[in-house]
Nucleic acid binder design. Sequence first.
DNA 1: GTCTATAAGAGGATAGAC
DNA 2: GTCTATCCTCTTATAGAC
Lengths: 205, 205
Amino acid sequence: MDPTLSKGDQARADILDAARHLFVTYGYHGTSMRAIAQAAGGRSVAGLYNHFPSKEAIFMALIAERNPYDLLFGVLEGALADAHTLADFVHTALREVLRVLPQHYDFLQLAQIDLREFGGKNIAHLLQHSAFPRLLDLLRRVQALPDAARLDSLVWVRTLASLVIGFVITEQLAPTGLFGDLSTDEWAAHLADMLLYGCLGPRAG
Amino acid sequence: MDPTLSKGDQARADILDAARHLFVTYGYHGTSMRAIAQAAGGRSVAGLYNHFPSKEAIFMALIAERNPYDLLFGVLEGALADAHTLADFVHTALREVLRVLPQHYDFLQLAQIDLREFGGKNIAHLLQHSAFPRLLDLLRRVQALPDAARLDSLVWVRTLASLVIGFVITEQLAPTGLFGDLSTDEWAAHLADMLLYGCLGPRAG
DNA sequence: GTCTATAAGAGGATAGAC
DNA sequence: GTCTATCCTCTTATAGAC
């Protein structure tokens, strides 16, 4: 579809697109190389092996090349640039992250597959080599915000990550309607207030 | 092993034990009926079908019969019985839940498998028919605590659940040592303070 | 780089004797 | 309730022509 791609690269992209969809829909072991080849434009199975040495290599390429980390960091950087206080940053960041994440639902599913099928090694590798260094740098700048001096960064960042991850998982688990009365933006605002002031503290609104 | 079990029930228990271990270690599709039969005391494959009609039925039985919900509710009830304030309850509950959960790591893994392989339908069924009714009842009594009147229960309970789920998942993802300086009890205390007062509020200690 | 054809074996599930 | 033996499908991966 993309005229800037060579024929080989286009085939590779087709394979990755097909595999992503099938892995997400039917799981890793529930997806066969046959199914991927068929979904990637009716190719032959053997053709896949011209681009990837194994099924696992296809999965690893998806984690490494189709992750939303650049996008997420862009969102966080944008939220930080606009923020004058920690409260500003937390509200904007949570709102934007929860807006952006659902658009990358596929990756979240792939991450869960990696956790189960490969012990999370591919995600952990990505975090250590790409995400963590940038995250620590960003965190230092967050701590420079006027009201953030007392921030225990380790506790804070794990709490923030837990809230986002837990939000996604509880969404998958809860029956429709249980948490459905509030929009995602409203949830983001509530979670931000909870993170900033707790359930006993003052409310912004 | 258990003399109170009939021969048939003992076989059933053996099969469930073996399947649980293999599912957790190798994943659902990574575990064959042959492997389960072998691990369940060197039985024959056909023998499994005297106790379960299919492989999926074995998995469903594990979710339905080997879950720690009774235990968790016991912990929460105990925490509530001892608590005079919401802060008491949150601290005790988080500490005890994070102590108890790792002892049921197998179930957490099975829950993740259910999420991926079966769309979470088995966990969702368990929650709706067993956990949610009891949880709502307990929540009403939590709100009767002196300082909990203003509690937005929906937001609060989802935040609490997200923190616990996120704690477990981040533990799996983080390289050893990144979060490893603090004990689980210390983490529980930090998370409880965060939940109660937020990152900008007062600290108990 | 793509194809057809096939290897070599594992998968879930069943038949029927004991 | 347990076994041995087996069915048939599907699996990943490869060989070799074009």
